[in-house]
Nucleic acid binder design. Structure first.
Length: 104
DNA sequence: GGAATGACGATAA
DNA sequence: ATTATCGCCATTC
C-alpha cells in the first residue's frame, strides 16, 4: 500500500527536523509534493508516536492540539523560538534544504 | 457510492 | 487578536 509509504516518508521528514526548529503540516505536504496538510496531520496522529511530533506545528504557529502542554515544555527545553504559547514561525520555520543533513 | 471526518490553511468579519 | 467560513484531500462510516 502506498499510504504506508507515505506515512514513512512523513515520519522521515519529521525526524529530520533539527532541534529548535519546526515545520508546518502544509510545509511537509508541499515538500513531499503530494497529499495535503490534513494527510500529514492524519499520519502524525496515527503513526507519529515515534518521532519528534512536537516539532510539527500548524502554519499559524499553533502547537499540536491535545498536547500543547507537552510540546510547549519540550520546545522551551530545546530553545525553540516561542511566542508565549505559540511558536515564532518567522525564526523557527525550517526547510530541509535549509540544512542539508548528510544522509548515510 | 455518498456523506462525514480530521494533529490544516487562508481569508473574511 | 479571536471567531467564523470555505476550500483541500484522503480515509472512514
Amino acid at each position: 500500500m502506498a499510504d504506508d509509504d507515505y506515512a514513512e516518508l512523513v515520519l522521515t521528514v519529521v525526524e529530520r527536523i533539527p532541534p529548535g526548529r519546526v515545520m508546518s503540516y502544509g510545509a511537509i505536504a508541499e515538500y513531499l509534493g503530494r497529499g495535503g496538510p490534513r494527510q500529514v496531520g492524519a499520519v502524525m496522529s496515527h503513526y507519529g508516536g515515534g518521532v519528534p511530533w512536537h516539532r510539527v506545528v500548524a502554519a499559524n504557529g499553533r502547537l499540536v492540539p491535545g498536547h500543547e502542554q507537552e510540546a510547549l515544555r519540550r520546545h522551551r527545553q530545546e530553545g525553540t523560538p516561542l511566542k508565549s504559547d505559540k511558536v515564532d514561525m518567522r525564526r523557527a520555520v525550517w526547510w530541509p534544504e535549509d540544512d542539508p543533513a548528510p544522509l548515510p
